[in-house]
Computed example of a mutant assay.
Amino acid sequence: MGLSDDPELQPLLFGLFLSMYLVTTLGNLLIILTISSDSHLHTPMYFFLSNPSLADVGFTSTTIPKMMVDIQTHSRVISYGGCLTQMSIVTLFGCLDSLLLTVMAYDRFVAICHPLHYSVIMNPRLSGLLVLVSFFISFLYSHLHSLMVSQLIFFMDVEIPHFFCEPSQLFHLACSDSSTNNILIYFLGAILGGVPLTGILFSYTRIVSSILRVSSTGGKYKAFSTCGSHLSVVCLFYGSALGVYLSSAVSNSPRKNAVASVMYNVVTPMLNPFMYSLRNRDIKRAMQKLLRRTA
């Protein structure tokens, strides 16, 4: 059903989402290209940074292009198989983003709290394994969503009050009893949301404790600046997700919940490249080199 039924708003929505999608895609791809083209950035920290950028591109590419096509063609139809596929991919990349932020927090914890052993602990094999495990867990979680929704019974024509196939909306629209599925999804969501967030908070508790023991002001500033961009992204990611959850719990309007979820699904992936590049001198320096070489 999209975000609005007003015909006069459709061109505005199309232009707004097209611009946000282009900024998100180009910004994240620029981060990936910058890291891959500069040998000085071939470290675990920047390897982990490039993976969330790739996940953000996949996340937004699953929802926004479909929405823009619907606006242009004045058709808001999606097939049953297409809906399941979209839901599965959105769940995959959303969960992957959460797990990768946790992996990045662990990387910063090792770099600041155990700097002498950093190169030994965060070796290329462990770095690749952490990303692979994160992807595997996310794949299982998204596959579980698809299996549960595929077991439900729906009417032939269903109106989804959202701009993409959001899992909780599909559970509410099912004809068959979905209470067990809802409990299971909320339980797994609490685990896959709560455990990574707990890991991030634990890592930063140890990081702050370690930084406060540093005697020099310059050393403290350097350590804080190393974690600043990641901490900003964590606050934006979990803050927007919590905001969407609270708004859905308080508001009974599905359309308002869809508007609130734009922050989590569109705005956050768009702002991530700016947070990583504007607060990181190495990234900015590498980008300038890349742009000069391209020019």
Score class of each variant (00 low, 15 high):
T24N: 12
T24H: 14
T24V: 03
T24Q: 09
L26M: 09
G27L: 00
N28K: 02
N28S: 05
L29A: 07
L29Y: 05
L29I: 02
L30Q: 04
I31P: 01
L33F: 14
I35V: 14
I35H: 01
S36N: 12
S37M: 12
S37K: 14
D38R: 07
D38S: 15
S39C: 09
L41G: 01
H42A: 12
P44T: 05
M45V: 10
M45Y: 08
M45R: 14
M45E: 13
Y46F: 14
Y46W: 07
Y46T: 05
Y46I: 14
Y46V: 06
F47H: 04
L49D: 08
P52Y: 02
L54S: 07
L54T: 06
A55Q: 07
A55T: 15
V57Q: 01
G58K: 02
G58C: 06
T60C: 04
T60I: 08
S61A: 04
S61M: 04
T62S: 15
T63F: 09
K66A: 15
K66R: 12
D70E: 10
D70T: 15
I71Y: 00
I71R: 02
T73W: 14
H74Y: 12
R76C: 09
I78L: 14
I78F: 10
S79H: 04
Y80P: 04
G82P: 13
C83M: 14
M87A: 11
M87S: 12
S88Q: 04
I89Q: 10
I89M: 13
I89A: 13
I89K: 08
F93I: 01
G94S: 01
C95W: 02
C95N: 07
L96R: 08
S98F: 10
S98K: 05
L99V: 08
L99H: 08
L101R: 10
V103L: 05
V103A: 10
M104H: 02
A105G: 05
Y106M: 04
Y106V: 12
R108Q: 03
R108E: 00
R108L: 00
F109K: 06
I112R: 02
I112G: 02
H114L: 10
H114F: 06
P115D: 03
L116R: 06
H117A: 10
Y118S: 03
V120S: 15
V120D: 14
I121F: 08
I121K: 03
I121E: 03
M122C: 11
P124N: 01
P124D: 10
P124S: 03
L126G: 05
L126W: 05
L126Y: 10
S127G: 13
L129T: 13
L130G: 02
L130H: 04
V131M: 12
V131T: 11
S134L: 06
F135S: 04
F136W: 11
I137G: 06
I137E: 07
I137D: 07
